[in-house]
Design a protein around this nucleic acid. Sequence first.
DNA 1: GTCTATAGGTTGATAGAC
DNA 2: GTCTATCAACCTATAGAC
Lengths: 218, 218
Amino acid sequence: MAALQPKRRGRPPAGGREAILEAALGLLRERGISRLTTREVAARAGVSEASVFYHYRDRAGLLKAVFEQGLAPLLALNEAGAIAGPDRRTVLERLGHGIERFLEQALPAITAAQSDAATRDELAAYMAANDLGAHRGVKALSDYLADEQAAGRVRADIDPQAVAATFVGACFMRAFQAQMHLPKRSLPSLPAVIDSVDLMLAPRAPGQVTQATRRRSA
Amino acid sequence: MAALQPKRRGRPPAGGREAILEAALGLLRERGISRLTTREVAARAGVSEASVFYHYRDRAGLLKAVFEQGLAPLLALNEAGAIAGPDRRTVLERLGHGIERFLEQALPAITAAQSDAATRDELAAYMAANDLGAHRGVKALSDYLADEQAAGRVRADIDPQAVAATFVGACFMRAFQAQMHLPKRSLPSLPAVIDSVDLMLAPRAPGQVTQATRRRSA
DNA sequence: GTCTATAGGTTGATAGAC
DNA sequence: GTCTATCAACCTATAGAC
């Protein structure tokens, strides 16, 4: 990332490049990709149309930049590593809100890429190369649950990966429903989903937690 | 649906209208909506471009027909009513496969509508008017689980709607991942999800199922 | 209902001056 | 780096004959 370089040489950028990218992302979210023309982007960014091509070569280059910008939050989540929290419910709350907030940003870009076969395949290749996708959220929660399971704080007979997929899937579905402007109230609220998953993860015999604690590894 | 009328009067249609719609749907799924031009539709359907406008007035009319065609399977599921099966696992299998198969057909149309704000709002209004959406699958499973719960075959302390949302959400996420050409193997398999949900729905005391059976209502 | 021909408008992209 | 001016391609839609 160029943002990490403390000092720059030479003439500072005029900000045209960033303005174009921001205008494109805003246009994409508000009007959809079919209205994302180089003309409207230039007008919204306050620059000429030729500047768009100067900075991004062609429309495909601009779109690629827009998609990577939209998926940037997931890359950042990449370095964050394992999720943590004082208790299981807090972990679920943080992860659930985090997923829905991220998808609110990323889904417009992801669905937009589906509008063209070439664009879709390009995005798929990019995501595969950077190991991006829904499995990331699943793995984060799955790893946490496996640890908790080893510590005896989660039912021993459940499959952490499968349970994680159901939780992440519910968040995913809620975010998608919201993005296509369908009433979110037709689906269970996030707290309700959290309560449900949290309840089902509880060890079967609540009074005998210490019995399983011996399996703690670290 | 006109398909239910047993007999027709007058001259039988030449099939041009259906050929155009089928070509448009195929083009949408293979190349995306941005390549769904009246030219290519006409060429693929083997008709002239003017025929497209004769049958569907304008491009928006064609798109509307394509979307309704893509969502038709869900309308059919509408009349099917409650889901059923010999046991809980079979019900989960049928519903899970049904959802993923349906989304395989419908998701291209749904995501395509997101490419334009006007089209997106139009589809959202159509779905709201016909009570379509992910909540349909959730409600179907939720109702089934509530019945099973009343019969004592499902844990009494779980929220049927929330559990249903996690299961449908997992199927939704898997179908979406597949549609955007990302490796499905990065997510848990459908049988694994089914096993997980099925296990967590089991009454807490396996040997004392009869204890809860007294709550059977019908 | 289907065709050919064409109008009218929008878009991505380039050339060349500043 | 940014601009104006321009082009070639494409797309939607209509007119009118068959």
